[in-house]
């Protein structure tokens, strides 16, 4: 007859090495934090003073604007380039390939300066019928290509070249049978891409895409060559005036950390959304875990108190 264990107490497994590891890491973190807080040369007072200064906030907004616009446009264009590259038309394939080839092989700095100096290469930009004198409109290039336009153009086209490859990789990772099943059901081609293939491709696309976006946040600082006053250019201007180099670099860095952190939270939830159906059961979010932790402990406490 089997023993009845129901009256026994369960003792949870112990993990002593986990505790040792935790202690070592905690010590290291504490040491770094201590030196950051106590070394007067970091000049935290100056950092605090400039962190929310109007000019810094303006620069921050410009950085966010550049990232958002060129990120979105870059990925939209990248999506189109990826579809072209995967299409059956040899012309579209080679156009898309050439685009990626050119923009991935020229330094972003050079692209940016070229766009800004387009007025030197082509004085006027016009829309008309080629090889005739018919012109629908005509503008001075320098009025069309402002600093902002050059920055967005440079960042977008460069981003598109990279995102095209990321999106193409994601699409290729989806099983061919999915397209076939969708085609057999009479689902139209556009719907097949957007409803069946893309959501599945997203799982492969998202981690790399967020890598790109986070890279772009900091990459926007390259527009300093156009004297465009985004976050990084702004702090440079300030420290050239005040000579407080390190604290101001710290101001910019802290803002980049904040943006990256917010993006990482977005990434977590968006990836979670697209993992629906890919994993048998979705893991709990940190919030849900915390709630569950407190709920079960509250129950345990009341149970103990009741006894």
């Amino acid at each position: 007859m089997a023993t009845d264990y129901s009256s026994y107490r369960v003792v949870a497994a112990r993990h002593p090495w986990r505790w040792v590891g935790t202690a070592v890491v905690a010590l290291g973190v504490f040491a770094v934090a201590w030196s950051l807080a106590t070394n007067p040369r970091w000049e935290w007072g100056v950092v605090a003073q400039w962190f929310t200064a109007q000019s810094v906030i303006n620069g921050l907004l410009e950085t966010l604007k550049l990232t958002a616009i060129s990120g979105i446009l870059g990925f939209v264009l990248g999506f189109i380039l990826a579809l072209m590259r995967l299409s059956a038309s040899p012309l579209l394939v080679s156009v898309s390939w050439t685009f990626s080839w050119i923009f991935r092989s020229t330094p972003l700095l050079v692209q940016m300066l070229l766009w800004y100096n387009l007025g030197y290469l082509y004085e006027k930009i016009s829309l008309g019928i080629p090889f005739t004198d018919v012109r629908f409109f005509e503008v001075q290039t320098t009025t069309l290509i402002s600093q902002f336009a050059a920055a967005v153009l440079g960042l977008t086209l460069n981003q598109a070249a990279y995102s095209a490859e990321i999106i193409r990789g994601g699409i290729l990772s989806v099983d061919q049978g999915q397209l076939e099943a969708a085609a057999a059901l009479g689902i139209p081609a556009w719907r097949r891409s957007t409803r069946i293939v893309l959501p599945q491709a997203m799982r492969a696309i998202l981690p790399t895409a967020f890598n790109e976006i986070i890279g772009l946040v900091k990459g926007t600082s390259i527009v300093y060559v156009l004297a465009y006053s985004e976050l990084f250019y702004t702090v440079q201007v300030i420290y050239n005036r005040t000579q407080q180099v390190l604290p101001l670099l710290l101001v910019a860095t802290l803002w980049y950390v904040v943006i990256t952190s917010v993006l990482s939270v977005f990434q977590y939830y968006i990836e979670r959304h697209y993992s629906k159906g890919a994993v048998r059961n979705l893991p709990l979010t940190p919030l849900q875990k915390a709630r569950k932790f407190f709920a079960t402990h509250a129950v345990a406490n009341t149970a103990r108190n009741a006894r």
Partner: peptide
């Protein structure tokens, strides 16, 4: 062609269900 296909249902060896849809 898509319209013709709606008159013909197909069931595959490896199901080919859309995994991200219920």
């Amino acid at each position: 062609i898509l319209k013709q296909r709606t008159e013909i249902g197909m069931v595959f060896q490896n199901f080919n269900l859309f995994p991200h849809l219920t």
